[in-house]
Design a binder for these strands. Structure first.
Length: 830
DNA sequence: AGCAAAAA
């Protein structure tokens, strides 16, 4: 860790930038060594005063935009050493009553002894002209105060706390700070947002607390429990804690863990819930207080809301029929049933895959309720989902955070100040985590009806819990499941394969390399086998192909055909790795093809080398996976599906050779290359060019653009550094100022996560083992079902099979399902 | 073989 041992010291001249959230600061620092030269220093979690003399530890780096800078990992305040430093220090406004002018006078008078005078003989300050008795008193008391702060600060900093937090800790604990922190350093985790277990532990060990002290172990248990959220879990089991806690503490525990857990439960540091496992044996499940409360709150709120309403079914039917007729809406039977069902239940769920008509059903429900004189509120977890809801329903829809009036970490709308409405409809509920659900449901007033809409097969929520899935699986909540697909269901292979994926079967998707006709058949789902071939392999195949094309009319493909390798064997494809099949014999490396041609036996050898490559892998045609993405985007899809077909690449990941960043860079270069007259702007590494496809990444209520909106850059003004982006569906044009453009990214490729809730005419989905960590069932399902006319996978069948086998949400440890069953049927404890 | 992600 400590490879960065360069140091750099100087006087802080100016604080160029300071981020109060994480403490990251950019400073201009005048070096001690070369006096005239100012350097840029970046440092984390440190607030430094202008004029302070600092010693930084870290390393020199070169930033692509800002050039040479010192990246500090540690900053220590030194006593001012030079007269110049002293003057800056005193004049920085740190001491009340001393400004730059007075500072100058003082330093000129006392020179090097200035600091000593302040420390020990402050009365002598009156020697300085302009400092009378009154001013001396002011300066004196300010200096006193400053000194006690400084003692605390020095203590905290000595034990590894950054200046920024030291200031906050001093503000909170005052002069007792040293005592409080020494007594229980782990208090800091609870009292200060931004200090975690690791920071507090550093202080604790530095102060000299024992590695096996109770405080330390309890803090570690709390930290592990809180961390389970990251995995999507609500609770951890004993064996999980026994594995993770000692690992965090970096020691073997003397006293067994259950002892501590019992103590913590008694002292309300954690909660335990007994949940029966498959064998009906009760297991102790350990919760952090908040998650325990949230889970229980969701279950009890739903129980309170649930129940049947007295509604005249016949009147609803008559009204619905009339409404649909007037607006020429065709409702299927299950949709009509859903409308009636939802209207007559206190709490219900409307679910179903894409293209099943959830939206139309919702529209009719909203109109019906309004006709019944009910006040209806609409909301969704994300800005984009809310905006789409408004567009489709024609009523305002808000994000849940806005609906509940989120302010400084709390919701203004809650059990005490509930929402004012008769009916609440929440869309895209697969994105709801347990905490937001608890916040939302507590704010529902008594007598209000609630409808959750969502597709549980889509991506799970970012936060902990499996809310929608648990509610559905509990079987306790009235659920209206739309199954009839309107989108040409019979023909659609996308729907067919999506269905298989959901069941856990790896779909056998046809490849155009195997069956070239399928392009013309306008199939809507394809798989192109491609792997991470090396440049050497690609070049080798291309050279051979080039050679054969010249020499023989019959292509090499004909030869491979003879081997009858085209039988569609998924299992074989799963185990084989295409690029490994191609071993280039040394004798053919960099060989002149004419020489090969002259030696007849060499031709046969060449053929046999190529025949080892899987005949429908893209390597066989001299394409890497990235080449295939390019070909699909620029040639193949436009050729068979029309040049106006909207194509979207959906990658499981941001990084990697087939991550969004790399694909974006490649497609920008190929699909929208630099041209004279085509204007562009550069921000650091990012280039935006006229014609680029872009995505907006944060809800911006001023511009009325939302996280996930995709558009095209219409024009760029290089003078003003502004641009105009046109967004679908109605091609509305938004003017971006320079600072707004930071919220834009290239969007030729986006992550599957970002695509949730959107649809595209054609999607290209790379699925390779390099995406290993992200490969799970819901992800593939979500990506595949984003395509309306075409979905093409590019990658290996092995990666696809891995993804389909991996069920993310089933691994989430949650108890909502269990709680709902218990609440509704009464606990069956004996 | 290390990774994605909402809200304010």
């Amino acid at each position: 860790m400590t490879l960065l041992t360069e140091t750099f010291s100087g006087i802080v001249q100016r604080i160029t930038y300071h981020n109060p959230d994480n403490g990251w600061s950019v400073l201009r620092v005048q070096s001690f060594i070369s006096h005239e030269k100012q350097e840029t220093v970046t440092v984390h979690q440190t607030k430094v005063f202008a004029g302070a003399t600092m010693e930084f530890k870290g390393a020199w780096t070169t930033h692509p935009k800002f050039g040479r800078q010192f990246k500090a990992v540690e900053a220590l305040e030194k006593k001012p050493a030079t007269a110049g430093a002293l003057e800056k220090y005193l004049g920085s406004g740190l001491i009340k009553g001393v400004g730059p002018k007075t500072a100058k006078k003082i330093v000129r008078h006392f020179g090097k002894e200035t600091l000593d005078i302040f420390e020990h003989k402050i009365d002598l300050l009156t020697e300085v002209p302009g400092i009378a008795h009154k001013k001396l008193e002011m300066i004196g008391s300010a200096w006193q105060e400053h000194r006690s702060i400084r003692d605390v600060m020095m203590f905290l900093q000595h034990h590894g706390i950054s200046t920024l937090f030291a200031v906050r800790i001093y503000k909170e604990y005052g002069d007792n700070a040293i005592q409080i922190v020494s007594q229980d350093p782990y208090r800091l985790v609870h009292d200060f947002y931004g200090i975690g277990f690791f920071s507090a532990d550093k202080v604790a060990l530095s102060i000299g607390l024992a590695r096996d002290s109770d405080q330390r172990i309890i803090a570690a248990i709390k930290h592990v429990l809180a961390g389970s959220r990251e995995e999507g879990h609500c609770y951890l089991t004993l064996s999980q804690l026994e594995q993770q806690v000692p690992q965090l503490l970096e020691m073997v525990m003397g006293t067994p863990l259950p002892h501590y857990l019992d103590v913590m439960e008694k002292e309300h540091h954690l909660r335990v819930r007994l949940i029966p496992d498959e064998n009906r044996l009760e297991e102790r499940c350990y919760y952090s207080n908040t998650l325990y409360h949230d889970e229980a709150a969701v279950a009890s709120c739903i129980h309170t809301l649930a129940g049947k309403m007295q509604i005249e079914q016949q009147r609803i039917k008559t009204w619905t029929d009339k409404y649909c007729q007037r607006h020429s809406i065709q409702l299927s039977d299950e949709q009509a049933d859903s409308v009636r069902g939802v209207a007559s239940h206190g709490f219900s769920i409307l679910t179903g895959g894409p293209g099943c008509g959830k939206t139309t059903t919702t529209l009719v429900i909203v109109r019906l309720l309004e006709a019944m004189g009910r006040k209806v509120l609409l909301a969704a977890p994300t800005g984009r989902a809310a905006q789409r809801m408004s567009e489709v329903i024609g009523r305002e829809a808000k994000t849940i955070h806005r609906l509940l009036e989120w302010q400084r970490g709390f919701f203004q709308k809650n059990a005490e100040q509930p929402l004012e409405t008769d009916f609440l409809i929440i869309d895209e509920c697969s994105m709801l985590d347990i905490s937001l659900s608890a916040g939302l449901l507590s704010a529902v007033p008594a007598g209000c009806q609630v409808l959750f809409i969502g597709d549980a097969d889509q991506l799970p929520s970012v936060g902990a819990g499996n809310v929608l899935g648990d509610m559905l699986m509990s079987g306790m909540i009235p659920c209206f499941h739309l199954t009839k697909v309107f989108r040409q269901a019979e023909k659609s292979m996308i729907i067919h394969h999506a269905h298989h994926i959901n069941k856990g079967d790896t779909p056998r998707i046809d490849s155009p390399f195997k069956t070239p006709e399928i392009w013309k058949d306008e199939t809507d789902c394809l798989f192109i086998d491609a792997d991470e071939a090396t440049q050497e392999q690609i070049q080798f195949v291309r050279r051979i192909k080039c050679f054969f094309d010249q020499q023989e009319t019959s292509s090499i493909n004909q030869d491979v055909n003879d081997q009858n390798l085209f039988e569609f064997r998924t299992e074989e494809a799963i185990t084989s790795s295409y690029e490994k099949d191609l071993v280039i014999p040394p004798k053919f490396q960099h060989v002149d093809l004419q020489t090969v041609y002259n030696a007849a036996n060499s031709i046969e050898e060449l053929k046999s080398v190529l025949q080892k490559v899987h005949p429908w892998s893209s390597l066989h045609y001299g394409f890497s996976a990235l080449d295939v993405v390019e070909k699909l985007y620029l040639e193949w899809i436009p050729k068979y599906y029309g040049g106006n077909c909207e194509i979207q690449v959906l990658s499981p990941m941001t990084r990697g050779s087939l991550g969004t960043t790399n694909i974006n860079a490649m497609l920008q270069k190929k699909a929208n290359p630099e041209q004279p007259g085509k204007r562009q702007l550069q921000f650091g590494e990012k280039i935006f060019r006229e014609g680029d496809r872009v995505i907006h990444r944060r809800n911006n209520y001023d511009l009325n653009v939302f996280n996930g909106d995709i558009g095209r850059i219409v024009s760029i003004d290089t003078e003003d550094m502004t641009c105009v982006v046109s967004f679908s569906p109605d091609n509305r044009e938004i003017i971006y100022q320079k600072e707004d453009m930071a919220q834009l990214d290239l969007a030729y490729a986006i992550t599957i996560h970002k695509s949730q809730g959107s649809e595209f005419e054609a999607v290209i989905i790379p699925v390779l083992t390099q995406h290993f960590k992200m490969l799970y069932r819901n992800l593939i399902y979500t990506g595949l079902t984003r395509g309306r006319k075409l979905a093409v996978f590019v990658g290996t069948r092995k990666a696809l099979a891995m993804a389909v086998r991996q069920q993310d949400t089933s691994k989430r440890q949650t108890a909502l399902k269990h709680l709902l069953i218990n609440t509704f049927t009464g606990p069956d404890r004996t």
